[in-house]
């Protein structure tokens, strides 16, 4: 594992912790898209199928379990927690996320390494992760006052993707085997989606004002 991969995993972990902290400390999930959280739960469940068959390292196993359980816990909180669920911005979180699931499934059935359940699930999870942030970005754009923790959550998620791109570039130049094009293209698309957000996050940080995305 190289330093970029590790930094990516840590910022990913940090984003989850920030989100859990926000929900736990404020008993509120305002500004958080349930649709994005459901998509992430689906991403992790379909990508980490290998938990059942292969053991790679304790690090991998623990991190995978953390990402699966935290995403399910967040979805549960937003849907069922007696206090938290009442703060969910349901009326603004209207992105039709099923279209993203359907599109990713079609892509995975068309473009995969081998036509096996695991390979198709893996490709599906990569495509879906690339676009899973869209409902969250749309909700951020609609929310007039984005609180700091929500902004930081999306910032760390974006940083995680950026570090993974650096990781793949590093691996491309240091390892013999060729990196695969599926995560390359999906990863670049995903990181590109954050570019706009990063710009406004930087502006709000520089000017020390609340984050607000233009409509």
């Amino acid at each position: 594992m190289n330093v970029f991969r590790f930094a990516g995993d840590m910022t990913h972990l940090f984003s989850v912790l920030v989100l859990l902290l926000k929900i736990y400390a404020t008993k509120s999930c305002s500004g958080i898209s349930l649709k994005t959280q459901e998509l992430y739960a689906l991403v992790f469940l379909t990508r980490y199928l290998d938990l059942l068959t292969d053991f790679i390292s304790l690090y991998n196993t623990v991190m995978k379990l953390v990402f699966i359980s935290s995403s399910l816990a967040i979805v549960w909180c937003m849907r069922a927690h007696p206090v938290v669920r009442r703060t969910y911005d349901k009326d603004q979180d209207t992105f039709r996320h099923y279209t993203l699931v359907a599109g990713s499934l079609v892509l995975a059935l068309l473009f995969h390494d081998r036509f096996t359940i695991r390979e198709v699930c893996w490709a599906f999870s990569i495509y879906l992760e690339a676009v899973a942030i869209l409902p969250q970005l749309v909700l951020l754009q609609r929310s007039r006052n984005v609180d700091n923790l929500t902004g930081q959550y999306v910032f760390f998620l974006g940083a995680y993707r950026a570090f993974y791109i650096l990781n793949w570039i590093y691996r491309y130049f240091t390892e013999q085997h060729f990196s695969r094009w599926i995560p390359w293209i999906a990863g670049l698309v995903q990181t590109g989606l954050y570019a706009d957000f990063f710009y406004y996050y930087y502006l709000s940080w520089k000017n020390n004002v609340k984050l607000q995305l233009p409509a």
């Binding site: 594992m1 995993d9 290998d50 790679i56 390292s57 991998n60 995978k64 990402f67 993974y164 240091t174």
Partner: peptide, 10 residues
């Protein structure tokens, strides 16, 4: 480890 494939990443 460097023998990990891209698919073993998180």
């Amino acid at each position: 480890t460097s023998s990990e494939s891209i698919k073993d990443e998180l």
